[in-house]
Simulated assay, not measured.
Amino acid sequence: MNSSKPVHPRQRRIWDISAPVRVGTPVFPGDTEYAQEWNATISPNCPVNVATITLSPHVGSHADAPLHYDPNGATIGDVPLEAYIGPCRVIHAIGCGPLIQWEHIAHAVADLPERVLVRTYRNMPVDRWDPELTAYAPQTIERLADLGVKLIGIDSASIDPAPSKTLDSHQVIRRRDMRVLENLVLDEVEEGDYELIALPLKLVTADASPLRAILRACS
């Protein structure tokens, strides 16, 4: 009788890069804040707690759908999922200023995978709105697309400057058929290559979706 225990593959480290979502989580000025109330609570006459939540799909870490910046774009529930899972590179551009220019990431663009996340904060402000958030320069996104990148992400609330009305970087995403993640928390993530898993909910009429986004160490 063989009494040896089964051999399990070595577990890979996971980094949770999702922003916490709760009452008080910052939102883009004018957007719907997170709210929660209890419809049922555990008591002698009720076996469960059941909550109702109200929120913008852009609260916390989220994926924008093409519908967010294109009136004829796909909803997040109709976007194919392939871009949201797979090899990914995290690049640091901490304190680079208002826009991520090519020179801020050029040191780490050799042999890029199809997914790139850029860390701009030393500590991402999960408890306050930052009107001076760092965004992507549109030309940087164009060059990433030329290298085969299909998804970009950032630890700030938008890939465009907060006051922008033209959303130039979002329009590059639209034209190049790319995907975008915003409000990631990359504080504990070193530069390098990982596996990204950041699946949006199947919200079939929505312009975005919250995420539980993780990075996993490469095997």
Rank of each mutant, 00 (worst) to 15 (best):
D130Q: 12
S164G: 00
V116Q: 07
I105L: 02
P125Y: 13
V149E: 04
L112Y: 02
K150H: 07
H68M: 13
I154A: 01
R174D: 03
Y69S: 06
R119N: 07
Y84E: 05
T166S: 05
G60H: 11
A83G: 08
V126T: 15
C88V: 13
Q101C: 11
Y121W: 14
G95S: 10
I141T: 03
H170W: 02
I94C: 07
P66N: 05
I94Y: 11
R176L: 01
D78W: 07
L99H: 15
V180H: 02
S169C: 02
H68T: 03
G77K: 08
A106T: 12
A145L: 01
P47A: 15
P57L: 10
E182G: 01
I94D: 11
I105Y: 06
P98A: 14
Y136L: 00
Y84T: 03
P98T: 14
Y69L: 01
H62R: 04
D168G: 00
P57S: 13
P87I: 02
T166L: 08
C46R: 08
L67I: 03
I100C: 14
T140W: 00
D177A: 12
E82Y: 12
A65Y: 00
H170Q: 01
V90R: 10
H107L: 05
P71V: 04
D177S: 10
G97I: 09
Y136W: 11
I91D: 07
A162R: 05
A110K: 09
V109D: 00
V149N: 08
R115N: 08
P131Q: 05
N72F: 13
I76T: 02
L81S: 10
R119E: 10
T134D: 06
Q101V: 08
R128F: 12
A135Y: 02
T120S: 11
R179H: 06
I94N: 07
N123M: 14
V59C: 15
A145H: 04
A106S: 14
V50K: 11
E142R: 10
T134E: 02
G60S: 08
I76E: 03
P131A: 09
E114T: 15
I173Y: 04
V172K: 00
A83F: 01
P87A: 13
N123P: 03
G73I: 05
P57I: 10
L55A: 14
D127T: 15
Q171W: 05
A51Y: 13
G73C: 03
P131N: 07
A108D: 06
A135C: 12
L144D: 02
T166E: 06
P98N: 10
H104G: 04
G60C: 07
I85C: 12
N123E: 15
V90D: 07
G148E: 01
H104F: 04
E82K: 12
I159Q: 01
R122D: 15
G97N: 13
L81Q: 09
D155N: 02
A74V: 11
T52S: 13
D127Q: 15
A106Q: 11
E142P: 05
P131T: 07
P138M: 04
V149M: 03
A162P: 03
W129Y: 15
R143I: 01
D155Y: 02
G148K: 05
E114D: 10
H62G: 05
L144I: 00
A145T: 00
A108M: 00
T52Q: 14
V126N: 08
D168Y: 06
G97H: 10
S164E: 00
Y69F: 15
N49Y: 14
P113R: 07
S43F: 00
G153T: 03
Q171N: 05
N183E: 08
E132Q: 09
R89C: 08
D168A: 12
L99F: 12
